[in-house]
Write a protein that binds this DNA or RNA. Sequence first.
DNA 1: CGAATCCATTGACGTTCGTCAATGGGTCTG
DNA 2: CAGACCCATTGACGAACGTCAATGGATTCG
Lengths: 110, 110
Amino acid sequence: MVLPERERGVCCPPTLKARPQKIEQTSEILRTLADPTRLQIALCLRDAKEPVCICDFTATFDISQPTVSHHMAKLREAGLVNVTKQGIWSFYRLASDLAPATRRILDAIG
Amino acid sequence: MVLPERERGVCCPPTLKARPQKIEQTSEILRTLADPTRLQIALCLRDAKEPVCICDFTATFDISQPTVSHHMAKLREAGLVNVTKQGIWSFYRLASDLAPATRRILDAIG
DNA sequence: CGAATCCATTGACGTTCGTCAATGGGTCTG
DNA sequence: CAGACCCATTGACGAACGTCAATGGATTCG
């Protein structure tokens, strides 16, 4: 294996291809998906044919209703999901204007 | 848009397709990549033709050497990278036995 | 050997995060 | 209207995280 020439104290800083702003955006998406509960919710919405009601998640996961609501807020703030209110119910689905880069990441999972 | 029928107090818990263990593994990968600095390092290693020396990252990022070392340890623990020591230098590259699922996520970014 | 260099580890500190209990707003039903 | 139900928000708390300064091991050079 041929290694780059090196002398003591001489480094070859790699050029960073991605713009800082892009890195920050991607980082937020990954941070949002990194929590196990939110990851399951996101995958569930990705694969769902119809919007899913909050009460379904509350019934599915072993966490309190406020915590579910907290996770949905995080997903909303990251632009990953849209919410539609119907009477007393809130239905969630993947954001209709999901960025292609975000869609690629979601599709790469599971 | 047709929504599922609903009555008060009646929920339709969604079936979770992914196994809990798989969710936990994916979650760790995402958590590791979620930090902006680690994300840049991972992408740099993904695109590098040759192993990259730690001192290169120390020179590139505006963080201390121990912090760079800390991030590399996280990447190692997550099984994302391998390290090769050569004299006083440590060269890092993407793990040779990177899981296909992990590779898909990495390739979906940037 | 002694000094210099690269890198990992340890300990500490402030911030962020996930969680819950409590509360309140909004909607439907009797 | 009164009660039941769904959901979001607030406040609080412990755990995890990112960062640095200090330290030490390992290697190389004079």
